[in-house]
Write a protein that binds this DNA or RNA. Structure first.
Lengths: 231, 231
DNA sequence: TGTACATCAGTGAACGCGCGTTCACTGATGTAC
DNA sequence: TGTACATCAGTGAACGCGCGTTCACTGATGTAC
């Protein structure tokens, strides 16, 4: 009986990698897990509800682990914002490439802009919450700039300008007006300012399906230069 | 400055209330001091930089004192937001009452809307930061609603509708478009999105003086209903 | 094909911090009689 | 006019909390030879 010492309930006879299956020392894809956790947290609790510790907790990892991948909280949020801008830019580009005359391209981008914000509220708000982002983050500024280039180019086409060179003051005005209207609409919708009206007129779907098209009639278009109210 | 208070020498021989002057037990106007401190804090550090303890510190009072006046942090912020909305509403009303046809009234309100945001960035952002506000706060919702009534009435006048009764879908569209454009412009300007362009064209003053009027050409006006891009 | 070793990606305990809030208390004020 | 007393507006010490970050460490992996 030298070496028997039987453990009654028996370990798996030979399950391949029992130990690793139970608790691997390395996570495997911590980077992606932390990003997913962060997106979930800001969706549930808002951007301010995010903490690095909570993200680590959800990824099943110690509080010091995220530093290896993102440095600090700002670094992780900046990465999430960067990915958001990339999706955002892709959505605008897809809308633009759906074709049509410049007015239609701009209109479609406006729809896409607001739709992205309403479909991705937490990411959208994070993308513009500078205080929580690292301005030196690799790729963030560029992803942001890229998104708006599609918008700018549609305005240039609308005003008969090439994609390079200075914008005329009129074109600047049109760009700012177009950007402001979709950005403002998105923020007001996310703040719930249209909820009461939508409730009375067909539910929340009315915001995208009915209100937005009505509001986007006021997007810049070639013959919209306003004479009145301009001193 | 009327009374040049010369205090060269030691203590006043008998200044009435020496002890109170040194350290009165009661603050005197703690409520107002806390509000002023809060506005200063959010201006310096952003809405998220606000803490109740810091406000108490600046008002020269123990950390438990503010509770007597505002309950908790949310209560104090809500009061600041309410006062902000009152000033904001007054600014819109003043712009409206400067007269002119409905298009001019709306234009002037648009200028006033953005000017308020740029002149009071911290208060403006707080006013729309629901997460830090108490929805049950006395007067907050009402002050908010009041502000926008002036805007709504200008749109009604523009569309030839009375101040009471349902808005037509077209009027809703115009209201949302007008609100969105000024709200979006204010947010983008505060986020610094126009800074580069302004730097190249006459400094930050260009935003209000030059860019905003150009963008506000696209505010709704009677004959602006858009035919194109409307399927 | 093995083996030594550098590097990487994690642990988990500990740190100091500032926060909001509670607590028993106290000084000042206003009011009823 | 005086006085008792309730109420109000503060104090300041203490509480527990969760946070970000540091630290010495360890297990796993990849690579040079």
């Amino acid at each position: 009986m030298a070496m028997t010492k039987k453990k009654p309930a028996a370990k798996p006879i030979l399950s391949g990698k029992p130990k690793r299956a139970l608790r691997p020392y390395h996570h495997g894809d911590l980077r992606a897990s932390l990003i997913a956790a962060t997106e979930a947290i800001i969706l549930e609790r808002g951007v301010n509800g995010f903490t690095l510790r909570e993200a680590a907790r959800r990824a099943g990892v110690s509080p010091a682990a995220p530093a290896h991948h993102f440095g600090d909280a700002t670094g992780l949020l900046s990465e999430v914002a960067t990915l958001g801008f990339k999706d955002f830019g892709a959505a605008l580009r897809a809308a633009d490439e759906a074709g049509g005359d410049p007015g239609e391209r701009l209109y479609r981008q406006g729809i896409a802009y607001v739709k992205f914000a309403l479909d991705n509220p937490a990411r959208f708000l994070l993308m513009f919450r500078e205080a929580r982002l690292d301005p030196t983050h690799e790729g963030l500024a560029e992803a942001g700039r890229d998104s708006f280039l599609t918008l700018e180019n549609a305005i240039r086409a609308l005003m008969g300008l090439p994609n390079e060179g200075e914008l005329t003051p009129e074109a600047y005005g049109a760009l700012m007006a177009g950007w402001s209207i979709v950005h403002g609409f998105a923020h007001l919708a996310l703040a719930g300012e249209f909820d009461a009206a939508a409730g009375a007129r067909g539910g929340q779907g009315a915001i995208l399906e009915s209100f937005l098209p009505l509001a986007l009639r006021y997007l810049p278009h070639p013959d919209a230069t306003r004479a009145s109210a301009k001193k």
